[in-house]
Amino acid sequence: MKINFILNDEEKTVDIQPDTRLVDLLRERFNLLSVKEGCGQGECGACTVIIDGKAVTSCLILVSQIEGSIIWTVEGLEKSGELEIFKKYFKKHGAVQCGYCTPGMVMSARALLNKNKHPDREEIRKAIAGNLCRCTGYNNIIDAITAIAEEGGFGV
């Protein structure tokens, strides 16, 4: 099946089995290795990407469902320069240890900032409730996202 979509600001067309999961398409066909598979059941959020402005778990989406969609991964944020801001504040607040959850956390935070330029801590907690971290705990990550919201230039 031919599928057309926009991936990290580039138009793409792939010819692929429609029952392929989005996470597999992104990792295997496009080598976008920021997209991690953790649980494969939509529980851990490691595979979170942004589709049409919204955070979604790419392990629970088939490629047949993404026709015409606009998809962003961490690699796209790197290209646009936004990732620098996330890197700076995640580092500053000690929000990364093993790093496995980090791309998912970044995408969930980015989607939140799409919708809400000035989230409070509770809103940040809600936004990353679907992303599991087993290393740093959540407070450092929430601190980082709070700082990004306040200082990162998304509030304009």
Binding site: G42, T48, L60, A111, A129, G130
Partner: peptide
């Protein structure tokens, strides 16, 4: 229902 990611789908 579920998480943000789940509710979005």
């Amino acid at each position: 229902v579920g998480s943000v990611q789940i509710r979005n789908r």
